[in-house]
Amino acid sequence: MATGTEPPTTERHPRAGGVRAAGRAAIAAPHLRTDRWWLAPAATAAGLLAFVVYSTWRAFAGADYYAAPYVSPFYSPCLAENCEPMKGGPNWEIFGSWWGISPAIIILVFPLGFRLTCYYYRKAYYRGFWASPPACAVAEPHKKYTGETRFPLILQNIHRYFFYAAIPVAGILTYDTVLAFRDERYDWGHMGLGTLVFVVNIVLIWAYTLSCHSCRHIVGGKLKHFSRHPVRYRMWQFAGKLNARHMLLAWTSLASVALADLYVYLVASGVFEDPRFF
């Protein structure tokens, strides 16, 4: 429409790639967002970093992980000979005496892999650590992007195998929680503050595990006709309800597992005694 009205102060093409690519609206700024878009990725990165630092310290410490009747979830099951003896507890010396470093490293590979390949955590660290993208409609700093099409990120596709592994791990943590209903002399029918911490933790661990996108797919999502599989349809609906809160469960279960470990550490290292309810 020719009206004789000229555009205002202009920027000319070409300038660079992405939102500054030739042909797109000439705007020099990588984004025009005015809200605090950086807050979410910054908080995510800080939260994840705090957990990584804490869990690395605790996993390699190899000490103060058992205070009868509680065993830290980072060290359960304990599969080497250098584990502290736990009466009735999850210490099976499968790895024998040759395993010299902290026994936590053996088992932590599985929950670590489960969370590392989790669809929610992928979003969190792609945004928080890799700025790909840092936030919606905020230009990412990378010149090239291939996503999850190549090695190593194509390995994210093995998430379901970590889900399979997460089930027995959660089962063993459930066993630990049952054992927490003993006292320090291993007598049954007792409960302390630690028992409560373990119960909350295991509920959150199971909720997070069952809210997994791979779980939702396996129990029913892969079907084309729900009407022919009413039980799996129910299971899919249940997994879907949990799945809607996957992010919340990812964070709360991450915090609860760290807090459960911290609780055991504080009791085992003698900072305080476990308050007993009965």
Partner: peptide, 13 residues
Amino acid sequence: VWRGDAHGGGLED
């Protein structure tokens, strides 16, 4: 409001 075309443009107050 951004005004312009494929050859260039800018934000107009």
